[in-house]
Design a protein around this nucleic acid. Structure first.
Lengths: 193, 193
DNA sequence: CAGAATACGGAACTATGATTCCGTTTGTCA
DNA sequence: TGACAAACGGAATCATAGTTCCGTATTCTG
């Protein structure tokens, strides 16, 4: 209860830090190949460490996936913030940010599966970033609607809903399913008539 | 190799037929509640039969799910065919059929998960109906484009792609995610400007 | 460089859930 | 009704994959 509130003590051993990174990278790769049923042993093997080591860094499989999702959400938050800072026609800015964020998601199978609702628990690890992203999205929408270049009835929650759909397309292997096309159709749907 | 080519012999015992139906119903219900990790034991319990009986009717879990999907696909095929037979403004017909088919899917969690790509294997059981549905969809699209009420660049494969997204929304429990709204946005996206 | 503290490796343990097996029961037909 | 085939029930089996444990190795500090 007392002691320094937030972690301090010793900084963390050099090998531990290195391994943590490797594990995250390997998990990302493994997940891209094997999807949601990637095995912890496989992650460990790819990272060149034992399973025990994986578990010291991430107490459960879900927490490992959660960290992957959190990192990605953070990248999207940063990207969206950067978009808001640019100036340009508000709807065009919005559409570009959406394209960029989708591009980020397309490179990380973990977040795709998370968005499809696989294991709601995973989201708890990304809670803050998630709320932030919705707030920023709302700001983009407001600006575009004020400029009358976006449909007036669009709400902030429409965006994650539609993006879940785009993520569904990303996880498909069918050659005729193209998430970029899916995204463009959706963007058109949001534009003011 | 010889003998009567297609099954014949004895018609199938009455209790067997009844149980098969019960199992399918129970599987539908169980799946709606527990999603993809519904257990075979649970299905058996709901149907009031032993697991062994479930396995006599459906050799694997996947085949049971496959049958559920196949039935549902067939309902959609019938519905689509009926839509094509109606007369009315082609785009309106198309939109209505989409709404009806989505309604069918919304009542069956199995097909939702199947559309999200969970276990590509499941589709093999629904192969014929699937191809048929795409063919009928193509016909609706052609008519609407000829009437110039649908975007000219829409292709038949766009529809299942977009509907997968709508199904993703269906599987979500979030109160702000509403698949009907998702669907309407998509329909608007396909309409000619 | 020694000793303590921190991490590591991976075999072993467990839980879960699909599938099998076989003795028993039920439906059908003569 | 009796006999036989078709079905059934559900305990037991098997496989898989997450998680734990503890002896060993590595890093850090003085």
């Amino acid at each position: 209860m007392s002691s320094s509130s937030i972690e301090s003590e010793r900084p963390q051993r050099a090998d531990a830090k290195r391994n943590r990174e490797r594990i995250l990278e390997s998990a990302r790769d493994a997940f891209a190949v094997h999807g949601p049923d990637t095995q912890m042993d496989e992650v460990a093997r790819l990272a060149g460490v034992g399973v025990g080591t994986v578990y010291r860094h991430f107490p459960t499989k879900e927490s490992l996936l959660g960290e992957l999702v959190r990192q990605q959400m953070e990248r999207m938050v940063d990207n969206t913030r950067a978009g808001l800072a640019r100036d340009g026609e508000p709807f065009a800015v919005f559409a570009d940010v959406l394209r960029e964020n989708a591009g980020i998601a397309s490179g990380n199978a973990a977040i795709q599966y998370a968005m499809l609702g696989a294991g709601e628990g995973v989201w708890e690890y990304a809670g803050v970033a998630q709320a932030e992203l919705i707030g920023l999205t709302e700001e983009m929408i407001t600006r575009a609607q004020r400029a009358a270049t976006m449909r007036a009835d669009v709400t902030a929650m429409d965006i994650p809903m539609l993006m879940c759909g785009v993520c569904a397309t990303m996880t498909h292997t069918k050659p005729h399913f193209d998430w970029r096309r899916h995204l463009e159709l959706i963007i058109d749907a949001l534009r003011a008539p």
